[in-house]
């Protein structure tokens, strides 16, 4: 319990520092926000300029601006976009479901397929199947994910026309269909790592004493795999999956750009190119929070899955 509180405390501290760094970064960026806020130079009358500066707090000191931004964020107000002139929270609200669905589908894919391949690899250790799985997955990880995305688009969508690549679809089923290729592209990079870690953990587990003991008792192979090997392998595997999901948020930036999805990742790229700093700030902050949330969830889950660590930490 105490450990959890300490962990939360550290997270809050990290969050505050990160938000400060993000805000400072945008503040330091060159370029006068006024050129974006009032596009037509003929409109930059002294009155209008003063009004806009007051509205966006451009005359306050750095610390004041940071604090007012932080306060707004805690109240759910993420600022107003320079480009769209709409609340950033609204803009993100429509785009977030797409990114989250994408990550969820990719996570499902790489967990199911990755862990599955890892198990098969471990059970058939040393065989041709083992070699091919490891070989193919390792090669796939080495291909940059944007190349994978481009190949998927051209082969499956363009040549074979099995899939559509038109942003997001209508309704639930439509959306799943449209996000299939992008989630494959996102998941492919993670497959190798997940299957390898699964394989290695299971191999380690299989060589432990209690497995031999179980075997000598005459327990069937399948029961051994399930009860002893797999369950004990869950710990490291879950941690790995958690870390991958956390870093997948950054991966959405590339995938969404290639597939033209209007998610949070592509909005980040667009707003950087357009110097739309309120949006950049908000998205970066969101990704940091998401990353930390996932890592904390994994940390919390680990003792639940693997009681041994819980005992160890309680004893410590």
């Amino acid at each position: 319990m105490l450990a959890l509180l300490r962990r939360l405390g550290a997270m809050v501290l990290t969050l505050v520092v990160s938000s400060f760094v993000i805000f400072a970064g945008m503040y330091a960026a060159p370029g006068d926000p006024l050129t974006f806020l009032i596009k037509n130079p003929e409109d930059r009358t002294p009155d209008r300029v003063a009004a806009v500066r007051a509205e966006y707090h451009l005359d306050d000191s750095f610390l004041q601006q940071y604090l007012s931004w932080a306060k707004d964020v805690l109240h759910g107000d993420l600022g107003t976009s320079f480009v769209y002139k709409q609340p950033v929270a609204d803009l993100m609200g429509t785009r977030l479901p797409i990114t989250l669905t994408l990550v969820a589908m990719a996570a499902l894919m790489f967990i199911v397929i990755g862990v599955g391949l890892g198990i098969v690899s471990a059970l058939k250790r040393g065989s041709a199947v083992d070699s091919s799985i490891t070989g193919v997955t390792t090669f796939l990880t080495s291909i940059p994910n944007f190349v994978v995305a481009l190949v998927l688009v051209s082969v499956f969508a363009v040549q074979l026309r099995w899939f559509e690549v038109s942003g997001d679809g209508e309704g639930f089923a439509g959306r799943l269909y449209h996000l299939t290729l992008p989630s494959i592209a996102l998941a492919i990079g993670a497959l190798a790592v997940v299957s390898r870690v699964t394989r290695q953990t299971m191999v380690e587990q299989q060589s432990l004493e209690h497995v031999d003991v179980a075997r000598s008792f005459g327990l069937s192979s399948r029961k051994i795999i399930w009860r002893h090997v797999l369950r004990n392998s869950l710990g490291p595997v879950v941690t790995m999956c958690g870390l991958i999901i956390a870093s997948m948020l950054a991966g959405t930036v590339v995938i969404e750009s290639v597939f033209g999805l209007s998610g949070v990742g592509s909005m980040l790229v667009d707003s950087i190119n357009a110097h739309d700093f309120p949006v950049v700030q908000a998205i970066l902050l969101f990704m940091v929070v998401a990353y930390m949330t996932v890592t904390i969830v994994v940390d919390v889950l680990y003792p639940l899955i693997d009681p041994r660590t819980r005992e160890r930490s309680e004893a410590a």
Binding site: S18, G25, G251, V253, L284, Y291
Partner: peptide
């Protein structure tokens, strides 16, 4: 730890934005 909180790519993207 703070640096780890940023996925590497995002950290660089922020630097690029600035």
């Amino acid at each position: 730890d703070v640096m780890f909180a940023f996925p590497g790519l995002l950290f660089v993207i922020m630097i690029i934005a600035v």
